Computed example of a mutant assay.
Amino acid sequence: MASLFFKSPVDLDIRLDGDDERKTVDVKVSKDRREKVPLYCDGESIKGAVTVRPRDGKRLEHTGIKVEFIGSIELFFDRGNHYEFLSLVQELAAPGEMRHAQTFDFEFKNVEKQYESYHGINVKLRYFVRVTVSRRMADVTREKDLWVYSYRVPPENNSSIKMDVGIEDCLHIEFEYSKSKYHLKDVIVGKIYFLLVRLKIKHMELSIIRRETTGAVPNQYNESETITKFEIMDGAPVRGETIPIRLFLGGFDLTPTFRDVNKKFSCRYYLSLVLVDEDARRYFKQSEITLFRRTNDQ
């Protein structure tokens, strides 16, 4: 990075071809800031230009200029280490000097991007272009992020989910969801059957839970967050009653399911059914669902 105590002797600008026409993704980069990032796919080339501009017309001596395309995983509890699973480099200029701005074209052809971009609670998987002007004193770098989607073919086997909640001689409920794998714009359709009700149920709610797991044992961290929660029943049900469920996923900030990405993190989703009785006791059942991205799930 450029020194904190001296003004950088050079301005760096990275432009990607077709940025103005390319689709973007609105990414949360910090607690209070979001940013539009260009969207790329697996196998797509990364092409653009780097402009190096010496400041104040001064002569810039350098020991080489390079551009890199990097895929990395950053674990927030391990901030000192970034795990690079993809690293490509091109030399733009041999050691020398410059007095005026110069623009260098670059292209990384047909790049395999095996993972989808992800910004979570404790982990970030990012792809970025980085240009470095190497100097005898301090290198000067500039980075530009891009976002990657991974599209999947809809699964051939997509069985329903059937589970029950029971307390002997007091409560027996069966619930069923029509399938276990959903695309990001899908609709969760299901039914809840009350076979035995001797408890005074006050209300029932359904939640989507996202569970992020980072690191490896013994330094493993689990974080759960509720994506949405809504009440599907208010008041006591009766035996034989059936309650339909219909939940549209398109309005929520969801990602595909990630399992053991580069042996660094996972992100799983669960449907959580919760019943609350008049004494505020809670009875719940969770079932994992799989989310995937189709071509038209932008």
Rank of each mutant, 00 (worst) to 15 (best):
D234A: 09
Y149D: 05
K162G: 01
L206T: 09
I73S: 03
K124S: 08
Q220M: 14
V37P: 01
N158E: 06
Y151A: 02
V153K: 15
F85A: 00
I188W: 05
A101T: 11
N219Y: 15
E241C: 12
K191V: 09
R198M: 03
E21V: 10
D11W: 05
I201Y: 02
E168M: 14
N158R: 02
E212C: 04
R22P: 03
Y149S: 03
G71E: 02
I232W: 07
K200H: 12
F248T: 13
D297I: 05
K191N: 15
F292L: 03
S134D: 10
K263S: 15
V52K: 01
V67C: 00
E174L: 07
T228M: 15
A49D: 10
V133M: 04
I161V: 12
P9D: 01
L39Y: 04
D56Q: 09
T103Q: 04
Q102N: 10
R53H: 13
T290R: 05
Q286P: 00
D11V: 08
H82S: 15
T24V: 15
Y149Q: 06
F6R: 14
D105H: 09
N122T: 04
S72D: 11
Y193H: 11
P237I: 04
R293V: 04
L86W: 06
Y193I: 11
F69H: 02
C267L: 09
F175M: 07
S87N: 14
V131L: 03
R152H: 13
L184K: 05
L275K: 01
K47E: 12
